[in-house]
Design a protein around this nucleic acid. Structure first.
Lengths: 205, 205
DNA sequence: TTAATAACCGTCCATTCGGTCAGTTAGCAA
DNA sequence: TTGCTAACTGACCGAATGGACGGTTATTAA
């Protein structure tokens, strides 16, 4: 989807990585080995340039992390903003948010993956966690309204419903790979179906 | 549940940590900061002993990880073994496994948490991932049989069903804390209900 | 009182870590 | 051909890392 290869045509200056192409490689490596488990040496080796060359593009290792997680968060909050245009009951808006989140997850998989693994060791990580909590709060509110509407099971409290729902959504990062046969819309269908209607086949009336 | 405090009564030798109590602190810290993000210095400070004292109990940092993830895996496979005694259809056995896994997760939360975050950087981690895949394979087989029985939706393939199901189960480590009001059996009920019957309220016939 | 046991300390080490800095090189436009 | 821009190199640094090692201290059983 995004061109991440070095030496792409028609640019000023010496060809090579720019911030974008470098970030793509970095995030991929962070996801493979973990952020703390990846040294700048490791990254430079993977890039095929020296460690100091990385610092031409980015002032610190943490900045790479910051750029990545914010990209994921911006994508997710863009889906939240889209909800304003969605008419209908809370459960429908909730389903929209689920589908939107699956779409962001599929489209920005490496960034979302990194986001969901952040632990809170540094300020960058804590800021990311704060924005994640903000997102979770929005989901919980929607679940609460859907329960009040009588559309979502009342034997599960809103916070738990939100957590189970997005627990399932977020678990996609563990196995979904866009290159496989399954496309994002079909994936979103599956998740929405299973989450809202369950895995069990119900005897028809 | 398990006594993890140092200086418990009636033991030989100088009182202090033994492997068990040390491991508990280590795993907790690993979960807070990440395995790679936790140095042996960090751990020694948390323990209140010197770094070298740790190496009296354990030969390496990786050994701590190995002990922890194997404890989690042993718990999960014990639940698999229990399935032999369960009569009934595949979907019932699958539900048993879900409930059993939730129980293990709740009882051995720190160990399971650490297990689910392993990336595969070292041999210890790769071995853990291999055992996890073995577990996943068992779940997928069960899902396949349940679909063949006509009990699980046929519009989701077995592997995806297994992944969504245990994606939801495993996401519990992100928020479930045993000290809260919710007990493990009630938690298992909720997860099983939501996963198999969905979050949506269905109009009664 | 004396072993045996088991936890612990202080010091040290080679390596790796994230990061700095002064210079170099490759392509483009004028 | 000359600037200009932007990517890159190599040598270096102080701090932190996982771990080794020889000696010490607190407790219980005989």
């Amino acid at each position: 989807m995004t061109d991440t290869s070095p030496n792409r045509p028609a640019k000023r200056g010496r060809p090579g990585y720019d911030l974008e192409s470098l970030l793509a490689v970095a995030v991929k490596l962070f996801n493979e080995r973990g952020y703390d488990g990846t040294s700048m040496e490791d990254l430079s080796r993977k890039l095929g340039i020296t460690k100091s060359a990385i610092y031409h593009h980015v002032p610190s290792k943490q900045e790479l992390l910051r750029l990545a997680v914010n990209r994921a968060l911006d994508g997710l909050f863009a889906e939240v903003d889209k909800l304003d245009t969605v008419e209908g009951r809370a459960i429908d808006r909730l389903e929209h948010l689920v589908r939107g989140s699956v779409a962001v997850l599929a489209d920005q998989l490496p960034f979302v993956t990194l986001l969901l693994r952040v632990r809170g060791n540094t300020k960058v990580e804590r800021d990311a966690l704060a924005r994640r909590r903000e997102f979770d709060h929005i989901v919980t509110d929607l679940a609460g309204k859907a329960i009040a509407d009588g559309d979502l099971r009342a034997d599960v409290d809103p916070a738990t419903a939100a957590r189970l729902l997005f627990g399932m959504v977020n678990s996609l990062i563990e196995w979904y790979r866009p290159r496989g046969g399954l496309r994002a819309p079909e994936l979103a269908d599956m998740v929405a179906t299973v989450a809202f209607d369950g895995l069990r086949v119900r005897p028809e009336a």
